[in-house]
Amino acid sequence: MLSACADPKSIEGLTWAFCYLTSGKHLAFYWSFGTVLLLLAITAPAALLFGFGGATAARSPFAPARIFGKTYIAMVRGVPDIVFFLFFVIALDQGIEYIKYLAVCPPGTPSPWQGLEFRVCQEAKVPLGTSSEFWHNAYGFMLAVVTFAIVFGAFTANVLFGAMQAVPRAQLETAEAYGMSHGQVFRRILVPQMWVYALPGLSNLWMILIKATPLLFLLGVEDIVYYARELGGSKTQAYEYPHGDWRLIYFLGLMVFYLVMTRLSEVVLTRLSARLSKGQATAAGEAMRKAAA
């Protein structure tokens, strides 16, 4: 903290604004934008992985795997995804504590589901009651990430499944005629070609993922929505920086942040789509060829 900001009540004007915007709480607010970006950075590849697994399972000749894959894809249709968000966070938390309960609680402890409570012995708490606040936050964040990955994995699986179906049959049949095995056709022909068909769907999902990040707040993570509400609320003279209700301004700030994020993504994804369409046997690729000629 700067020495000029030592006594906030005695300063005003630009200095006040500067000191206000660099207060400890505000720095935490700026860091929470990092939380959102971190969530995006972890969830996007994780969801892609889950989605790839789901789509592959849904195409499997082995019936149980196929049923699992199809159920996973169907899961998110018809039901609002926020239901899944609220559900998985509790379900995962209880599941983890239950497994730990089986492992570490002394024999004879009653089942954790007691009437209206879910309670495991002290040693089985996740994280332990004695751990630092950092671990509590990290655990909450991890639950949120896994939940996001499961839900968005299902959406991704849907897109990738469609993209795999869209690869022309003749391509796969030709590969089989050359004597390639199932695995080889999958790795060498299907997977490299499916991305151009998957890109529109995946871009759409990326936009949705960006716009889903405020749900972190609902899952109990101290994200940008949390801080915007905390900092914006009116502050009495008891606080260092008293002010009226500024939540509207903070939320306008968040809105601008999201608009910039989606706009930037749109620009990048349009370029990527042009890159991937180059030389492809699709309408977009054909249009590019014609434009060049």
Binding site: P214, F251, L252, Y258
Partner: peptide, 13 residues
């Protein structure tokens, strides 16, 4: 381009 969640918050405030 912005989350509905934020739109609700903003409108309410």
């Amino acid at each position: 381009g912005s989350p509905l969640f934020i739109q609700f918050f903003l409108a309410y405030e």
